[in-house]
Design a protein around this nucleic acid. Structure first.
Length: 293
DNA sequence: ATATGCGACATCTGGTCTCG
DNA sequence: CGAGACCAGATGTCGCATAT
């Protein structure tokens, strides 16, 4: 009967660690910021989800002993051993230790768009309190231990640990059930289908926001929450997919492909392709042809 | 409580141009 | 056709205000 990694974490003893990583030139969207393993007893311990700034992040806290309390938008939960709490900030919730109580847990603090997107999906589906299987707990504990013990922290390693934690929670919340058809908010869905239908036309964010009937700032926020990436990134990906298809499936010249894919000219298209695929257009065409022989 | 709008900001990118 | 320098304008964010 497992929990091998969990016991290693318990052996590791109480500890807290914050990683102060430099801002990367190529941002990772699921990032571990800090982690810890602690015991609280007979003390005042309370966190309010509205009082922790406005920069969004999320906390995963898994109880190993004792009991914590969570008030999540009016619903009260008991956090007993084996239960994992997932909360995002800012949000109307509070978690605390009852007077005279005892609470032992390990926790991870993450940020990044993808981490928040996953958290939102999990919260929508399963709520803020999860009961992972033994294996899933071990995966969480391993991620926590990784963040605590990482000898030379780097954005990549911190992201790997954070992703491991989120995917464990994902499995807890969704298991192997088939995905329920994704329902995007109506405005975002309108914008997305407009993008797909008009990929060869200019698609400035301002106009997409108009189609979604939102302000530009709010549109970018909602789009990121729903799809895990910025609108311009999404558009660029769609354009690139089209460019690649046309390069491989047709003999169209570069300039024509650029126009058909929404790029102003072949020159710029080549620059983008090079940045994302490390290949010039005709090089990509040749390489693809070679690979399919 | 939550969703949305507003305006300012620093940063990034699309598009142009030159050259090989 | 492709690489690279350049920069106005576009983009993503933030803190805060307002609406539902």
């Amino acid at each position: 009967m497992g929990n091998f990694v969990l016991s290693k974490l318990l052996d590791h003893g109480h500890d807290i660690r914050s990683l102060n990583l430099p801002r990367s030139a190529a941002p990772l969207h699921c990032m571990g910021v800090s982690a810890g393993y602690e015991q609280r007893r007979n003390e005042v311990y309370s966190w309010d989800g509205m009082q922790r700034g406005t920069a969004p992040f999320l906390v995963i806290q898994h109880t190993t002993l004792g009991e914590g309390r969570l008030d999540y938008a009016g619903t009260k939960h008991r956090l007993t051993p084996g239960k994992t709490m997932l909360v995002t900030m800012p949000h109307a919730h509070r978690y605390w230790l009852e007077r005279g109580g005892e609470w032992e847990y390990f926790w991870l603090l993450l940020n990044g768009r993808e981490a928040l997107r996953l958290a939102r999906e999990i919260l929508d589906n399963a709520g803020p309190v999860l009961e992972p299987t033994t294996t899933q707990i071990d995966r969480l504990a391993a991620a926590c231990l990784d963040l605590l013990q990482m000898p030379e922290p780097s954005p990549g390693l911190a992201s790997t640990a954070a992703y491991a934690a989120m995917t464990s929670l994902h499995d807890t919340a969704f298991g192997s059930r088939p995905a329920p058809e994704r329902t995007l908010p109506a405005g975002i869905a309108r914008a997305v289908s407009h993008i797909e239908a008009n990929i060869s036309a200019p698609l400035p964010v301002e106009r997409l926001a108009g189609i979604a009937e939102m302000s530009r700032a709010h549109f970018v926020r909602s789009f990121g929450a729903a799809l895990g990436k910025a609108p311009s990134d999404y558009v660029l990906e769609k354009r690139l997919e089209r460019v690649e298809r046309l390069l491989l499936a047709t003999e169209m010249p570069v300039a024509a492909i650029a126009e058909a894919s929404g790029f102003a000219d072949g020159n710029y298209m080549a620059k983008v392709l090079r940045r994302h695929r490390k290949m010039a257009p005709l090089e990509f065409r040749a390489a693809g042809r070679r690979a399919s022989l």
